[in-house]
Amino acid sequence: MSDAGLFRDELVAAGLLVLTGTDGIYGRSSVYEDIVAAVDGLAVGAALAEGAVSYRFPPVMPRQVFEQTGYLSSFPDLMGSVSTFTGNNADHRKLMDVAQAGGDWTALLQAAGANLCPAACHPLYPTLAGTLPEGGRRFDVAGWCYRHEPSVDPARMQAFRMHELVYVGDAAGATEHRDRWLQLGVDVLASLGLEVQTVVANDPFFGRVGRILADNQRAETLKFEIVTPISSAEHPTAIGSSNCHLDHFGEPFGIETADGGVAHSCCFGFGLDRITLALLRTHGMDPGDWPAAARDRLWA
């Protein structure tokens, strides 16, 4: 079995994760959730310290907003689109017949007008249409995200939580936010006893077109990740990332800076589930046995 599979077995044996029958979709124990909540608390504290406004959005977003984010063109293979049944009684009988025969009943559904959130910050941008104050604005958003990438690696979940610190304003402010939060993120994670490194990264853009987008993103060093070993020592996992979007969200959502330019944006994200897994991997399966420094930082 792979290292990732063995680590998942360990988490399940310790009662921290509960298998559901689908890779990447797990139940969590209260011990696991206490760790997530404590890490989330550190993120909230750091965000409020610099005057960020907090919002929490549900894990689904309007389809129109999803379309405007450009996700369909960049990551079609990762999306989750919500479907429902809108037929009549005869259609319902057909639906049940197909389902009972083991057929693909989902082909008889219609789009519900909603998509699963692929990133915690995406529902924020349409709320910011208009002109920003001088100096831009900062936000603290967190929530459940969905990406369709089933894997036995517990660090690659289909449903997971992300906590993001977002800046919307001018280009210089976005770069400043990216660099400062990357360092703040490293400081927070290192204070928990995690061995982290910062690397230049790219998003997993889809297809041939995606190769150019990924190459551009790396060449312009728009995205950095904070990585640490979780399921593999050779291939460390990103547990945080800092990403300059340029005007990717400012343009479609009509967000302008105080001087009338198209707004740039940047987000720093803490991967709450991955940080939790990294702590369990590094310090052991029982938080009661973790080093005092890490425990104090999380729960003192």
């Binding site: 450009g70 041939r208 077109v209 190769r211 150019i212 987008l213 190459d215 993103q217 340029l246």
Partner: peptide
């Protein structure tokens, strides 16, 4: 922009009836 360069690539492929191989799918090509 990055996204514009992608549209340029696709239009070049249509116009010249070629397909850029993976090794050429880089920022520097365009």
């Amino acid at each position: 922009t990055s996204h514009a360069s992608v549209n340029v690539m696709l239009a070049l492929e249509d116009e010249f009836d070629v397909e850029f191989p993976e090794v050429m799918l880089r920022k520097s090509t365009f």
